[in-house]
């Protein structure tokens, strides 16, 4: 038998648990503030909208909560490798595990509290100020901004392989460009004319599946004058990887000017568009 096996729990044995807990507490006290104040500001998706702000806060919170757990594993492993490693040339078994009900109960209790706490935290986030956290809520959203029917409505139309946008409050004009007013709530009514796409406005924190025959509503409130990327996040065919465009958050006055220019520019084709509807079953499908 090795010295470790003989001495386990003996009178000369150091208090390993206290040592591990102390190292872990010190490392946690150092690393958690670093995660919050040094790494945290660089964790996406930043603060382009109310939704991304909340997503960013959630990411920082989760990362900060994960740090003590990660450190516990690393410290325990590191300590075990350094202190409990097999010495000498003879390989022998260590002392048998006998089970420790208190630790087991503590483990289940702590992890349960963590998981349930995060579930409650996430639910509050979803139902709170961000009104769905930028996710598609289907045709009947559970949470809406105040006066949801009066905020800017933007219909996002996915098609292989292009995004176009209709503005029902501005004569139903359709355009391949997207500008949005800053500090104003926007309702994205996302649909598709063919297969399933996914509207992902990264800097706005919006992601909603574009499903044919369905109106998937997501809300966002842009907070900064900046450009934002739109991508398709659902594999949709040969040009899926090119289904990108860049939108712009502008002032309210600039938006009014822009939407008026789009109305003039596309007046000729607007008369051919179907009446605005939550989704379309377009004809012709003769070929198909």
């Amino acid at each position: 038998m090795s010295a470790v096996a003989h001495d386990a729990g003996g009178p000369g044995e150091p208090r390993h648990g206290v040592r591990i807990a102390t190292i872990w507490a010190v490392a946690t006290a150092v690393c958690v503030p670093l995660m919050i104040w040094v790494v945290g500001p660089h964790i996406p998706p930043y603060n382009g909208s109310l939704q991304t702000k909340e997503q960013h806060d959630v990411n920082v919170t989760l990362a900060s909560l994960a740090v003590p757990i990660l450190l516990m594993i690393w410290v325990y492993f590191g300590y075990s490798i350094a202190v409990f490693r097999q010495r000498g040339t003879v390989i022998v078994d260590g002392p048998p595990d006998t089970g420790e009900p208190r630790i087991q109960v503590l483990w289940v209790a702590v992890t349960s509290v963590l998981v349930l706490g995060l579930a409650i935290y996430g639910t509050i986030g979803l139902l709170g100020a961000s009104k769905g956290a930028g996710g598609g809520q289907g045709p009947n959203p559970l949470v809406k901004p105040e006066n949801a029917n009066k905020i800017l409505q933007v219909q996002v139309i996915g098609q292989q392989w292009l995004w176009t946008y209709r503005f029902p409050q501005y004569g139903g004009v359709e355009t391949p460009n997207l500008e949005l007013p800053v500090n104003e709530w926007v309702a994205f009514n996302v649909t598709s004319l063919d297969v399933i796409h996914s509207f992902w406005a990264y800097e706005l924190g919006v992601k909603a599946d574009a499903v044919p025959g369905s109106n998937n509503i997501a809300y966002a409130k842009p907070l900064r004058l900046e450009s934002f990327q739109v991508r398709c996040a659902e594999l949709c065919g040969i040009w899926h990887g090119h289904m990108n465009m860049v939108g712009q958050v502008v002032t309210k006055a600039q938006f009014a000017s822009w939407i008026a220019s789009q109305d003039r520019k596309y007046a000729g084709v607007t008369k051919y568009l179907p009446p605005y509807a939550p989704y379309y079953y377009p004809v012709p499908l003769r070929r198909g």
């Binding site: 292989q160 065919g237 090119h242 198909g288």
Partner: peptide, 24 residues
């Protein structure tokens, strides 16, 4: 720069968007 046809013109394919519509 990619280009494409936007008419669902692929006869015999789902929604007219398969086959030649998906092939360089």
């Amino acid at each position: 720069y990619r280009w494409q046809c936007f008419v669902p013109c692929a006869a015999g394919f789902y929604l007219g968007n398969g086959g030649p519509m998906q092939t360089l």
